[in-house]
């Protein structure tokens, strides 16, 4: 095992340690609320596992800066306009279209130039993968729903048994 693999995987091992701590709390604790806490830690750590997968070196959050969005939009429009004028340059990259805006001067010249620059810059931006984030947004909500349901059950059990300690409850049941 080289240092490189360790450097590339340490974060996963960390996440595994966290997951297993949560899992241990669920398995070992006899207090019902404590089990729910363990479940929470376990699930939160799984969210971390997913989020680590999506990360790219030197990446940034998958939010496209407004300037670039604007540029691409106007590039679109100018492209449409250019096509109507018969000056269409097909097969060109977005950046060229952006540049086309500037040359054409049809749209506000300054803005177009700025947009062209932004689009050039856009080629260099690396975005992290948005999909794990989306999945985890769903999972977080599922997690809180489970927690809420579990806690409602705990309240109900406490009403019926007068305790939230699992062993006490089992003793009470045997005593019946």
């Amino acid at each position: 095992m080289t240092l490189e693999t360790i450097a590339g995987l340490y974060n996963y091992w960390m996440v595994i340690f966290l997951m297993m701590t949560g899992f241990y709390i669920v398995l070992a604790r006899k207090n019902l609320i404590k089990s729910v806490i363990g479940l929470n830690i376990f699930q939160t750590s799984v969210f971390l596992l997913y989020i680590t997968m999506g990360k790219v070196n030197n990446g940034t959050a998958p939010i496209i800066p407004p300037a670039i969005v604007e540029a691409q939009k106007s590039a679109h429009e100018s492209h449409a306009g250019a096509a109507a004028g018969g000056v269409a340059e097909h097969g060109a990259g977005v950046a060229e279209h952006g540049a086309g805006v500037a040359e054409h001067g049809a749209v506000v010249a300054e803005h177009g130039a700025g947009a062209a620059e932004a689009v050039h810059a856009a080629g260099d931006i690396v975005y992290s993968n948005p999909l794990p984030s989306v999945l985890m947004l769903t999972a977080i909500v599922v997690g809180i729903a489970t927690t809420a349901l579990a806690l409602a059950l705990v309240v109900r059990i406490r009403e019926d048994y007068g305790t939230v300690d699992e062993e006490r409850i089992l003793e009470l049941d045997r005593g019946e």
Binding site: F23, L39, Q43, M53, L153, R156, I157, D173
Partner: peptide
């Protein structure tokens, strides 16, 4: 009164199962 307790025990075990499934899906996705 054992019904809520049975449901709770199922919930804990079921959620562990679901979380295992979630981990499995994650690794396959990766």
């Amino acid at each position: 009164r054992r019904a809520p307790l049975a449901a709770f025990q199922y919930l804990i075990l079921g959620s562990i199962g679901a979380t295992f499934i979630l981990i499995g899906i994650g690794l396959l996705y990766q």
